[in-house]
Design a protein around this nucleic acid. Structure first.
Lengths: 229, 229
DNA sequence: TTACGGCTTACAGCTTCCTTACAATTCTCG
DNA sequence: CGAGAATTGTAAGGAAGCTGTAAGCCGTAA
């Protein structure tokens, strides 16, 4: 399912949005201020961001601007109490995709979210057209099936790339060995084998700065692995 | 410049919108009822449609629905006096991309139009260039179906040219063997055959400087090929 | 008939995979 | 805290799989 990041400092509103969005089947992340929003946008890799304009510290415009300056193309829906036309125009000019003023109807908001995701070409399973970032150094391009580390291409074998893709799909969450076996190797039974581990080691060797002390492809003992971005 | 179709029966409002949009540099078409809107959508080929919901005869929802049913993916901004949340949700569900209620601010509307065009990936002009460049040395002229390498013509067979065209359509992204078979050979089933590979080899021989070390027509193991420009 | 394009087949060469064995690490329990 | 057990990391080699490419057949058009 698609991933949505809510950047909102009001805990009640944030909770309400998270709940409503989760009921709709989205994976939701929440950040309570601007800088955290920017960090999460990179780490969480959302397909859409709902951004409050009135944030403590760094206001929403600045968040949006630095998001766009960093090359992100993720759809942004601005949520705010300011209903002046000039504010709206400023929001759109800065690179927003929609602008909803409080108080708003939840159903309308959900409908707008869905419309934005539809337009941005995100399928129901979060088919990113874009490039996924992992940490500071790694970029994964799903369309061309290439991976770049600090700008230079790293060549992965087909299995390695599929495994990375499977991890990426679950980024932040654990991928169990069985899940990975099913998805990458389409095993039906839970054959005990070290195949997954071996390919993980290979990925680490190619992608991690220090393969013996991985910072992105982490081990979850007794279960499987987790990709931290 | 982008083309915008306004479907609006109120002449004053239609005129106002047309003027405002033209000032912004858009090419504007106007239709005063639903059926004409549909006709114009096909004839005029707009990059965006501004659609009033309250139209004589055929209402806006029906226009939108039959537009989408006919396979059109053009962004649609609904413009209406109805501000009930249920109406908005219905609008989005039917396939609208934005929903603005009257009375509206002209600047806001223009900003929303611009945001929609941006998101839909419509540049400031059309996207149809007849000549495609591949690297430093190759030029592909789609209109005359010729390929030039360093200025001198390379003769491709019809199949070779179609294959190149299919790769070109996806430049940067992977084209799977099955996709290529479907598109160039219109195969329905996934017959296992080496035909694609053979023609790729032929293309490389004719287009690449060093066919055994291709720089443009790249192999993506287990999947297919990728054209890098 | 000849020339050409298009397709299949065959095989060589290379890449990729998986298994196994052993090392290293982490956990558990006395 | 320490020993043993469980779990994960990793290197290596043979087997399997994939792609590149040459050769040949067939149908069609000149």
């Amino acid at each position: 399912m698609s991933r949505i990041l809510v950047v909102e400092d009001n805990p009640d509103l944030a909770f309400g949005l998270r709940t409503a969005l989760e009921v709709e089947g989205y994976q939701v992340g929440v950040a309570e201020d601007g800088p955290k929003g920017l960090t999460e946008a990179r780490r969480f890799g959302p397909d859409l961001i709902i951004l409050d304009l009135m944030l403590p510290g760094m206001d929403g415009y600045r968040v949006l601007r630095s998001l766009r300056e960093s090359g992100s193309d993720v759809p942004v829906l601005i949520l705010t109490a300011r209903s002046e036309e000039a504010d709206k125009v400023l929001g759109f000019t800065t690179g927003a995709d929609d602008y909803v003023t409080k108080p708003f109807g939840l159903l309308e908001l959900l409908a707008r979210v869905k419309a934005l995701l539809r337009r941005a070409g995100v399928g129901s399973n979060g088919t990113h057209t874009a490039i996924a970032q992992i940490g500071e150094h790694l970029e994964v391009n799903l369309a061309s099936r290439t991976v770049h580390r600090d700008g230079t291409e790293v060549s992965l074998t087909p299995k390695e790339f599929e495994l990375l893709q499977a991890l990426l799909k679950r980024r932040g969450a654990v991928a169990s060995r069985l899940e990975l076996l099913k998805e990458v190797w389409d095993y039906s039974a839970a054959v005990m084998t070290r195949t997954v581990d071996m390919h993980i080691a290979e990925l680490r060797r190619k992608l991690e700065e220090n393969p013996s002390r991985p910072r992105h492809i982490l081990t979850v003992r007794k279960v499987g692995y987790r990709l931290e971005t």
